[in-house]
Computed example of a mutant assay.
Amino acid sequence: MERHLHIVSLDVPYPVNHGGMFDLFYKLVALHQAGVKIHLHCFEYGRGPQPELEQYCASVQYYERQCGHKGFSHKLPYIVASRCSAELVNNLLNDEHPILLEGIHCSSILQDERFARRKTILRLHNVEYQYYRQLADSTHSVFKKLYYLHESKLLRSYEAAIAEKASVILAVSEQDVQTYRTKFGVKNIMHLPVFLPYNHISSKEGIGCFCLYQGNLSVDENEKAAIWLIEEVFNEIPAHFIVAGKDPSRKLEKAAERSGHACVVANPSEDEMQDMISKAQINILPSFNCTGVKLKLLNALFNGRHCVVNDAAVKDSSISPACHIGTNAESFKQIVAQLYHNPFTQEEITLRQQLLEPMFNNERNARQLSQVIWQERVTG
């Protein structure tokens, strides 16, 4: 018997050129390999149609996201209101196939009574109201801060209202599972690890030649982390420090120029980024938010040497034993000084293999997802 599945994606999940695309795209690949007939529905706002997706999906449809003032609502969060589509609703009502909603962003149909008896699975990418509250703390822009705080307030009410309407919720982290259980009293939630392009540890033994921070540098939180590292951690350490990622600001570049040990690599290709991750002696990745899962950290753990993080990056996470954890600038300095000339060993690779490879196994996780979708019994 053929298994058909609608997947509603908050964005076009290809090309896979930043962390947010990993789970979206590699889930398609794994489900396709498991024999699932995928009917993909994408909200498009700049990436355009991608023929690559047709290799993994029985059908692919695109819907314009209502960006700017067209997407604002007094009642719904912007990330949800801008993705409401009557065309999408009509297409989903043409059959009775189960529906996987990728993110709170795509969950507006859960408020529609016509889907009340439909099998709907909500993939939770973050506890969004907490994420937006933390974005507000990371920006210096008054306009952005007000927007993030307003969105956070709407999201808290919205997430509480729709939390019990999905058949089941699949969170990317155990921490997000516990948050939904304690804050919203949700019972129909379980952890499903993210899908990744790598299933085996490829970290190299030995010593690398620099420290690396990487991420989307146009995101306020990432810029804040990079500048903090330049000014508070690498200000006195005689170690070469590289900040690499998408669209760095002039403010960040100036901070690196003032430093005697830092440089910025703007908009590296995917191959260049992976080459830097593998060659670095230390991947240093503090975070200023503690929701969801840090895909750039998983990339570094699968492909890099020593990883240094703060508590927020690995809070309540089973991957923390594979990381060196600092609590402030001074402890980060001490850890970097200890690790900079310390070879990365086979014992550390073995530890990562034991911690990461069983959890982030795309084939196994696709089977678990299929069980959730096509069987009533759900184990958490």
Rank of each mutant, 00 (worst) to 15 (best):
G46R: 09
G46Q: 03
G46E: 02
R47M: 01
R47H: 07
P51R: 02
E52G: 01
L53F: 10
C57M: 11
C57E: 05
A58D: 15
Y62N: 13
E64C: 07
R65L: 11
Q66H: 14
G68N: 12
H69Q: 12
K70A: 13
K70Q: 14
G71F: 15
H74N: 10
L76F: 10
P77T: 02
I79M: 12
I79A: 01
I79K: 03
V80H: 02
V80T: 01
A81Q: 05
S82D: 03
S85V: 04
S85I: 00
S85H: 01
S85Y: 03
E87D: 15
V89T: 15
N90I: 02
N91A: 05
N94Q: 12
D95P: 15
P98I: 07
I99K: 02
I99G: 10
L101V: 11
L101G: 09
G103T: 09
H105S: 05
C106Y: 07
C106Q: 04
L110E: 09
Q111S: 13
R114H: 14
F115Y: 05
F115R: 02
A116E: 04
R118C: 01
K119F: 06
T120K: 03
R123E: 09
R123G: 08
N126Q: 08
E128H: 14
Y129H: 15
Q130L: 14
Y131T: 02
Y131W: 10
R133G: 12
R133M: 08
Q134R: 14
Q134A: 09
A136S: 13
D137R: 11
D137T: 01
D137Q: 07
S138V: 09
T139E: 04
S141A: 10
S141V: 06
V142T: 04
V142G: 08
K145G: 01
L146G: 00
Y147M: 08
Y148E: 04
L149M: 06
L149P: 02
H150S: 12
E151M: 01
E151C: 10
S152V: 09
S152D: 04
S152A: 15
L155Q: 01
L155G: 04
L155Y: 10
S157V: 09
A160P: 01
I162L: 03
I162G: 05
E164G: 07
K165Y: 07
V168M: 04
L170I: 06
L170E: 03
A171F: 07
S173L: 00
Q178V: 03
T179F: 13
T179K: 01
T179V: 05
Y180C: 11
Y180T: 01
R181V: 11
T182G: 00
K183N: 06
F184R: 00
F184H: 07
G185P: 03
V186K: 13
I189R: 04
H191P: 03
H191C: 02
H191D: 10
L192I: 06
P193W: 05
P193K: 10
